[in-house]
Every structure is written in C-alpha cells, then in structure tokens.
Simulated scan of single mutants.
Amino acid sequence: MTRTEQRSERLTQALRDAGVRITRQRAALVDVLAAADDHPDAVELHRRADEAVPGISLSTVYRTLTELEEQGVIHRHLFEGASARFEHAEAEHHDHMIDVETGEVIEFCSDRIEKLQAEIAAEMGYDIVHHRMELYVRKRSGR
C-alpha cells in the first residue's frame, strides 16, 4: 500500500469515527488531501477535488476539513496574509518559511534551531511542550 493510500485510509477512518458519511465527493476530497505534498488552502483543495468528482461544494470542503482537524489528522496553518493552509498531521516536526512574494511554503528542519530553542526555554525554567516557527522570507536579488 502506498503512502497516499495509507493517508487516504487514515483520513477516511477519522471521518467515519466522527460519524461523517463518506460520499463520493468527500472520498474525492480525502484522496486529493492524501496526495497533497504542498500546503493547499480550501479553495485549492476544492478545485482539485472538483476535477476528480464534479459537484463538490466549497461548504462540504470546509466542513470536512474542520472535522479532520478536530480528529487530529490534519493541521491548519494560518500564515500571515493568506487563507488557512492544510497539511497531514503525520509529518515529523518541521518549521516553515513563507515566501512573501509568491506565497510558497517551504518546509525545513534545523537541529541547531531546535537545540537553541530548548536551551533558551531551559535557561528560563521551562520545557517546550509544542512550538511552531514561521519565517517570512523574500528571495535575495541577484540569485
């Protein structure tokens, strides 16, 4: 079974666990979300799902995303200046850079940053429970 198929099963099961009926439109949305390796917003997910199974309403997309978020299988990101973006909750911890000119979201991991954050928290008498880092960036000119 592929990773996308596993994600699709997990998302579908989360909806079933919440008592949500799996219609053809919802199944298409789940498949699109499972295949997404970017950070699409609801409108983009709607566009992709509608290509696969025409007729899905944007309100169904929003309701389904809300339910999946409540079930803990997707994360909603509210990056400055943009509509909410979504990604799979299964991903290992990572941070984000958001290109302020294109809106592109770039995932990155840095052991140095993670270590420094833990050191700072410890120096102040705390343990990190959860964190998110978002860097808003612009490409350097001439590169």
Rank of each mutant, 00 (worst) to 15 (best):
E90T: 14
D111T: 09
E119Q: 10
V105Q: 06
R47N: 08
V32K: 11
H46V: 00
R85Y: 09
I98T: 06
G72C: 01
A27Q: 13
D95T: 03
A42E: 07
I22Y: 14
A36W: 10
R7F: 03
D17Y: 06
E119A: 09
V129A: 13
A84F: 03
C109E: 12
L15T: 09
A18H: 09
R47V: 07
I74P: 10
L135E: 12
T12P: 08
A91S: 09
Q25L: 11
A35S: 15
A34H: 05
V105R: 08
A122N: 03
A18Y: 06
D99M: 02
D17K: 12
K139D: 12
A36E: 13
A52I: 07
A35N: 14
R132D: 10
M97D: 10
A42H: 04
E70M: 05
D95A: 13
D50E: 10
D41V: 00
A27R: 15
Q71S: 14
F108M: 02
D99P: 00
S110E: 07
T12H: 11
F86N: 01
H130D: 15
E114I: 09
Y126M: 13
E80N: 13
T12M: 13
G125P: 04
S110N: 10
E107I: 00
M133Q: 07
D95S: 14
I74D: 03
D95K: 01
D111V: 05
E114G: 11
V100C: 08
T64V: 11
R10S: 14
H39T: 08
H46Y: 05
A35W: 01
S59K: 11
S59Y: 09
Q6Y: 07
P54R: 15
V129R: 13
S110Y: 02
C109V: 04
D17A: 12
R24I: 00
V32W: 08
V73Q: 02
A121F: 07
R63A: 15
L68H: 03
A91K: 10
R26Y: 05
V129F: 08
L68V: 05
V105T: 05
E5A: 09
H94I: 02
A14M: 00
A84V: 06
M97E: 11
I120M: 09
H130S: 15
E134W: 01
V61S: 12
D95R: 00
H88S: 15
T64P: 05
P54C: 06
I128Q: 10
R143C: 04
L29G: 04
L45D: 05
Y126H: 12
A28H: 02
I74Q: 00
F108P: 01
A84W: 02
A34T: 01
H93L: 12
K139P: 13
T64I: 02
D31N: 14
D41P: 05
H77W: 01
V53Y: 06
K115W: 09
Q117E: 13
H88Y: 02
D50I: 01
A122Y: 08
E90C: 12
E44I: 04
T60D: 15
L15Q: 06
I120Q: 13
D127L: 13
D37R: 14
I56Q: 11
Q25V: 00
L135M: 10
